[in-house]
Design a protein around this nucleic acid. Structure first.
Length: 433
DNA sequence: TCTGGGGTCCTAGGACCC
DNA sequence: TCTGGGGTCCTAGGACCC
């Protein structure tokens, strides 16, 4: 904690939804929900008009639709969000060289590194208001909420107090007066699980947390979190604003509208994800040694497996080969809703092939199931079961006849299914790159 | 058909080394 | 041949954040 209110936290209000309303005037003043469009999607951002109906982040699309059926549901234009975010971050860097982005819509700014006459409350208040006006200008009308205080913790807490389009400055010396009546859930890092543990120990507010000894908190929550919360309950936070932080992992994952049971299909999807991870690594000039997969089963149980290579790689083919081998250890008979591939243990150098050709080795390729050849029913003509992918040969009287073949393996066997047979799954094409 | 995607950090146990 | 301890790496899982 500093003696001056020199840490600024800026939060763009309902960011994704606000960009959509900016770019499409017909959406202004109306409920807009970004995310939650797919069969298993969740809400990423709801505009304030939609929040009135109880729609919020991380809510399932199904529930959001039930609460606010007349909202505009959008899948998101991340390029536009990234571009707008860049403009905002540049405004912050014009104010101070020490800017720490937390996400596309949030950042800390160290005002002690800015060129200001002093750090009095009146001065930083004016700086904050100017900053909010400037953000409004460069974004074409987006609003931001700002918190300014003597530490990251307090600045972030402060920026939550006057949303949207507001600002809160916490004068040095008043931090504990502000914190003590608040619930422990305002502390970043206290989520549902930690809150429940604290609640069982009779701790609801920060004032109550402050009464608990450090030993007791460590016993309750473990060394790192116990010690951390003991400090935050006293407004003790000396974490610096750090401008550049290097990525520690890169991953790609996907949730599928219906559960996967076909191992060949899973291997094909992992292969595709591995290629995407490799491409992103090369683009960023990094490589890594530990390849991980993530598998979420039908019942939401989440498994992970990883393998550490003797030397770093950025090669999608290698990553894919390891990923498929890791999948081989897992029992996926109940069905899989999510698959993911990641690489960690990153180094900012590349071991080999720095300028070499990047053609992939053909013998490592896994053949993806064939694309649709006929249409029945609309959008669902290519299907698969545990035998692999197939396509609909004919249908009638509630029965579907499927040929299990691909261009590589004709002619395949023909089987008939009832239309509602749970063994028959719609083939979900992998997302576009 | 409750429960996204891309991350970070922490814990805990076992291997292995000194 | 009584049991030792620390440090690092690896793996799996969990909590949390936006």
């Amino acid at each position: 904690m500093r003696a001056t209110a020199s840490v600024l936290h800026l939060d763009l209000d309902a960011f994704f939804a606000a960009v959509e309303q900016r770019d499409k005037p017909s959406l202004r003043g109306k409920p807009v929900i970004v995310g939650g469009t797919g069969g298993r999607g969740v809400v990423s951002t709801a505009s304030y008009e939609a929040r009135k109906y109880g729609v919020g982040s991380a809510m399932s699309g199904r529930e959001a639709r039930a609460r606010c059926p007349h909202a505009a549901f959008l899948s998101g234009r991340f390029h536009a969000y990234r571009e707008t975010s860049r403009a905002v971050m540049q405004v912050l860097r014009d104010l101070s060289p020490l800017v720490e982005p937390l996400s596309l819509d949030e950042a800390f700014v160290d005002l002690a590194a800015a060129d200001l006459p002093d750090l009095e409350v009146s001065t930083v208040t004016e700086v904050g208001e100017q900053l909010r006006r400037r953000v409004h200008e460069v974004t074409g009308g987006l609003t931001a909420t700002v918190g300014i205080a003597s530490s990251k913790f307090l600045a972030k807490v402060a920026s939550e107090l006057d949303k949207p389009d507001g600002m809160t400055v916490v004068p040095p010396g008043t931090e504990l007066d502000l914190l003590r009546p608040m619930k422990v859930t305002v502390i970043p890092g206290v989520g549902p699980a930690t809150n429940e543990r604290l609640r069982r120990a009779g701790i609801h507010t920060i004032a109550e947390l402050e009464q608990v000894s450090e030993d007791e908190l460590v016993r309750l929550l473990g060394q790192a979190q116990g010690h951390g919360l003991w400090q935050l309950a006293r407004a003790q936070d000396s974490r610096p604003v750090v401008a550049e932080r290097e990525a520690k992992s890169i991953s790609v994952e996907g949730t599928y509208d219906s559960d996967l049971t076909d191992r060949r299909l899973m291997e094909g999807l992992l292969t595709r994800q591995a290629r995407e991870v490799g491409a992103r690594m090369r683009k960023n000039g990094i490589s890594g040694r530990t390849v991980s997969i993530k598998v979420r089963l039908h019942d939401f149980t989440t498994l992970s497996r990883s393998s550490t290579l003797s030397s770093p790689t950025d090669d999608g083919t290698t990553i894919g080969r390891v990923a498929r081998a890791l999948l081989g250890d897992l029992d996926t008979t109940g069905g899989v809703r999510l698959l993911g591939v990641g690489v960690s243990g990153l180094a900012d150098w590349v071991q080999e092939d720095l300028f070499g050709d990047d053609t992939e080795e053909a013998e490592e390729e896994v053949v993806l199931p064939e694309p649709p050849r006929r249409t029945w029913p609309p959008g669902a003509d290519v299907v698969h079961d545990e035998m692999g992918p197939g396509w609909v040969w004919g249908s009638g009287s509630g029965v579907v006849t499927v040929r299990f073949e691909t261009a590589e393996t004709p002619p395949g066997p023909v089987r008939s299914f009832r239309m509602d047979d749970p063994a028959l799954h719609r083939w979900e094409p992998p997302p576009e790159d």
